[in-house]
Design a protein around this nucleic acid. Structure first.
Lengths: 355, 355
DNA sequence: TTTTTTTACGCAATCGTTGCCGAGAACGAT
DNA sequence: ATCGTTCTCGGCAACGATTGCGTAAAAAAA
């Protein structure tokens, strides 16, 4: 099978010791220039590459970082991974990906597998099912470098990279209010996720600031984050079947938003005439959708980059790090047709007449 | 920093030799059951995990596979990687991802980096820029396991997993013809890519079988596969500015299709009334687009799975493999609104009158 | 010429694990 | 009592590369 050339092969071929070859290759001054030249030429001719595994063993590091996300086939995460890969590549690190598929058990297995010395550090966005964090805490307490991004936990003190989910939720809701909607429902994923909580808080705050009373029946949690279409469809149906039907929906996740659009289309409701929709989504396609979708965009690529930079800083730090950063990036509301200004209803004509 | 327990630590603590501990842990019959019990209990208590790097060095394998694709943030590839990861995970392999960003140089660097003994095999979809294959050939000749998927080359004899691109192109074109379109343009990426060639051949064959003359000016290559929007936009503009303007476009790639839709929208052409559109796309969102898009879907997940199974078979084969498989999966045309039956033009009324 | 310094290289340990060989004890068979 | 066998276990080497230390030979200084 495939066998590559080693330092030992060079040493044997040239009648030198492995230490001499090693030093020659690294350009040590204690090797004569003729020997160096000879070794380097031979190495180039036979395309010598140091064995990274041997180096890892010696240096006790693998120059690779592990990524644990719920799924790759999701615009937000694939863009984030793109950012991760771009930084890692430039710094000479490999990226090892694993998916939790929103399962706690799978997350634990992946984390343990990666951390058991095959990666130097971990980049994590927590699974929707996960509501306790011992598997991270154990590692972190032992000094293993972890950076959380997107979905984080406050129970572990380390670097974190997030967006301002509160503001994202606030802005989305405020935008709907500005467009004339008042009965705004909120579709979100598992309630214990940091991103869900914060977006919900932003939603509530925007309502409060606009003196719109909070209607608890307008808030729907989908614990599987839209992975199960039925769950989402049921939530949407129960919303539109309410006596006091909402006139807008703010959905707090990519898959949630897309599935919601599909569900509304299936039910036969017109957007935004029957019901408006604003949602978190990082798909570049939403503006080509029918109708084009007002979306809260996250800087996924930058999040990946930033998280990776922080992680590599942790990994390469000589002393144990005790001061941790929490970096908060901004979201952006891209306004399209799905939240067009509300057409005044018939019964509001009276008011107009008054004017 | 982070230090994990080793076999040596256990040996010292228990007053045994490392070989005894090693054997006890692997349940060897030549260790007394008391010793085994003692060792295993100690190992569990201190959460011992064998060092995969030391094992890699010893066994001369890393139990990881490398993936080289042009980009992750693309539905086709993220779905394929999903399939790759699912199989690899079950077989105990790590997946290491790298992106070529359609650049030949970057592809070469990635391949060399991964192959220099940090992965046991490679899963490759060739970059758009790549038109010679020495970097793969050298490895393959040395017995290094490589499996190509999606974008392949015939110059290297190894396992390959593709879709029937010819049939995909044929079916898409035939579908347009069946819907009443005859002036069908073809938008494709770099001409030296296997997928471009085959889809083009399918397109041509469908025209030929329907006795529609081929119009060379209807075929547009975008060498950057839609990565550069301007290139695509120019191609679309030059198509719609032709004297004998096409009444339909068949686009042969995901990004191409989406960008084409955006370009037509920007130009202000109505789909399908002014011009119909059918394209390869693996985005689950196309049916929610405006108009919903008739798309050729590829079994990306299955391709990833199949390719990974073949690669692991190669890696774990005792003897050098000389018989290689080429697995061809089928595409599926999902018909939506963008290729609705053509409305007969005014000047065809005469014919109708005759009837 | 003798002593010191410099040059240029080799030896061996190290990282964590396993394979191979062999040692010592216990035990049954002769 | 002696031999052979079996059971347990330890020592050494190896995987590939790096590195501190040691040292022979050559060069320089005395």
């Amino acid at each position: 099978m495939y066998e590559a050339i080693t330092i030992k092969d060079i040493a044997k071929a040239l009648g030198l010791s492995t230490s001499t070859v090693s030093r020659a290759l690294r350009g040590s001054h204690e090797i004569s220039s003729e020997t160096k030249k000879m070794v380097i030429e031979y190495a180039e001719q036979f395309n010598y590459r140091p064995n990274p595994i041997a180096l890892s063993l010696k240096e006790r590091r693998s120059r690779s970082i592990g990524v644990v996300v719920c799924e790759i086939a999701n615009n937000f995460f694939s863009q984030a991974i793109n950012g991760i890969e771009s930084v890692a590549y430039n710094r000479g690190y490999h990226v090892i990906i694993s998916q939790s598929h929103e399962s706690y058990d799978r997350e634990v297995v992946n984390v343990e597998h990666l951390a058991s010395r095959s990666v130097d550090g971990l980049l994590v966005s927590i699974s929707a099912e996960t509501d306790h964090f011992e598997h991270f805490k154990n590692l972190h307490d032992k000094g293993f470098p972890i950076v959380f991004f997107d979905r984080i936990t406050d129970t572990i003190e380390t670097h974190k990279v997030v967006v301002d989910n509160y503001k994202g939720g606030y802005d989305a809701t405020q935008h709907l209010i500005d467009a004339g909607y008042t009965k705004i429902a909120h579709l979100t994923s598992a309630s214990h996720l940091s991103i869900s909580r914060e977006r919900l808080e932003g939603y509530k705050a925007a309502l409060r600031d606009n003196h719109i009373p909070l209607n608890e029946s307008y808030i729907k949690n989908c614990d599987h984050g839209g992975m199960i279409y039925k769950e989402l469809e049921d939530a949407v149906k129960s919303l539109v079947n309410l006596k006091d039907k909402p006139d807008a929906i703010f959905s707090a996740g990519d898959r949630l938003t897309v599935s919601c659009l599909a569900a509304l289309k299936a039910i036969g409701l017109k957007i935004p005439d029957d019901i408006a929709l604003v949602g978190f989504s990082n798909s570049p396609l939403v503006e080509l959708m029918n109708p084009s979708l007002t979306a809260v965009k996250q800087p996924a690529f930058e999040m990946g980059q930033t998280a990776t930079e922080l992680l590599i800083k942790l990994i390469e730090s000589k002393r144990a790090v005790t001061e941790f950063e929490k970096i908060v990036l901004q979201t952006e509301v891209v306004v399209k047709d799905s939240s067009a200004n509300k057409i005044p209803e018939k019964n509001s004509k009276t008011k107009r007449v008054v004017i």
